[in-house]
Design a binder for these strands. Structure first.
Lengths: 151, 151
DNA sequence: GCCTTGTAGTCAGGCTACCTTACCAAACAA
DNA sequence: TTGTTTGGTAAGGTAGCCTGACTACAAGGC
């Protein structure tokens, strides 16, 4: 029973912390005047090249279908952070290109992430944040290996 | 840029690990012959009393609306893991009660969680799993404190 | 040059997991 | 007993994904 509780708790904790971090991130971005962005829009900015990226590439990198990704792009385009332009090198493709406002958000995102990183280091210690990442990576590797060998 | 990458990576890592653990959990439960259960059904079993619990209580404990929770209960009832019975002490209320099969899943769930806990301890070390939990709890507390003071 | 096959993106429709609003029935308090 | 609170359901909506079907363009073989 106690083991169950702690393990269940760990899974819940992983979810809570992830959500809280993402929310804090978007809260700060919104507070800086860049509203309308939702956590799910992160998939666009995460891999977006400053000179533009092809939709298919972005979708593949974020592990989503082109359709789902395209919807997010439409939202973010409506908010004025990116535009879709025909790719001059491929008539089929469209480039997702950040606007000036989009580039500002990209930069701001980096700054906020750096800020958060600094705050955790202050709160719990730099070494423990590093250890957190390391342990998570090892468990991730363990699980990935397991599911590929099981299949 | 490198800071961004690592911090972004940490958020992604938290999500991946959580999902992988949940998936592994449900994979093993399904492999043991208890099919049809999805990760979202965890909200029912997590707080379910072996003698039955009121829907409202369960919904509140898992932080969901009664309607959303009721839908999950309907699903899990259709799978034969719980039944809804009128509460003898409150004519308005209904008790969500695990069936024999439901009690088996409750027990199996504990066992699988314990198994996973043991496997991580073997893979990365018991102390590091404990450290992971501690650090996550501190960051969680930090975030919770921040959002309550901000609001 | 044409024709087949492959690739980029969109459209339509569907699913899961939530939500809010509105409601009914039982319980409780004045 | 009457008004208010509480337990649960019904209806409808939204976000975030999916698959299948389609169009437009690209690229290779002949």
């Amino acid at each position: 029973m106690p083991t169950v509780t702690t393990t269940q708790h760990l899974v819940a904790l992983l979810g809570s912390v992830k959500e809280e971090l993402l929310e804090e991130m978007y809260r700060r971005v919104a507070a800086a005047g860049y509203g309308g962005l939702r956590p799910s829009h992160g998939c666009i900015f995460r891999y977006l090249d400053i000179d533009g990226s092809k939709l298919s590439d972005l979708a593949e990198q974020s592990g989503m279908s082109k359709q789902a990704f395209g919807e997010h792009v439409a939202n973010v385009e409506a908010l004025g952070y990116v535009v879709r332009q025909p790719d001059p090198e491929d008539g089929r493709a469209k480039l997702v290109v950040p606007t000036a406002r989009g580039r500002e958000v990209l930069l701001l995102g980096s700054q906020v992430f750096a800020e958060l990183e600094r705050e955790w280091a202050e709160a719990v210690g730099e070494d423990r944040v590093a250890a957190l990442r390391d342990t998570l990576e090892e468990i991730h590797a363990l699980q990935t290996a397991r599911s590929s060998s099981a299949r």
